[in-house]
Amino acid sequence: MRFTLNGAPAEVEAPPMKRLLDVLREECALTGSKEGCGEGECGACTVLVDGMPVVSCLVPFAQVRDAEVVTIEGLGGTHPLQKAFAELGGAQCGICTPGMIMAAVALGPDPGFEEIRRGLAGNLCRCTGYEAIYRAVQGASA
C-alpha cells in the first residue's frame, strides 16, 4: 500500500486492519510514536494524517492509503516546538513527548492559551502538570 510518510513516498505491505501505530513502529522502524493505552485515551501515539492529529493506535492501516502521514521523526529535530520542549522542561520522562509535540504542531502557529489547553486535552502527561508544556508551546511561537 502506498502513502506518503514524513514527506517521502512509502510502500508498505501490512494487513489492512493492522494498527497504524504498529505499522509505523514495526514495519517502518519509526519507534518515536509510543503506545500508552491502546484505546485512544493518552495520545502518546499521536501522528498527523493529512495534517490532522490522530491517535494511531485506533487507525487501521487501510485508512492511510494515499494519505500523508507525519510522525515525530518527520519534524527532523529542528522544529521550534522540539527545541522549546527540550529547553523549557516540556519533556520529562519523554514518553508522551512525541505525541504531545505532534498535537501541538496541529495547533498551528501562535495558538492562544485556551487553544493550547483544549488542543492538548487528548494528550496525557503524568510528569509535568502541563505548565511546562504550555510554556514550551508558547515559547516555540515567541
Partner: peptide, 18 residues
Amino acid sequence: PRKDGIPKVTGAALYVDD
C-alpha cells in the same frame, strides 16, 4: 540543557518496547 532533552523530543530515545 537537559542531558536527555534532544533524544526525547526527536523520538530517538529508546524505551524498552522500542
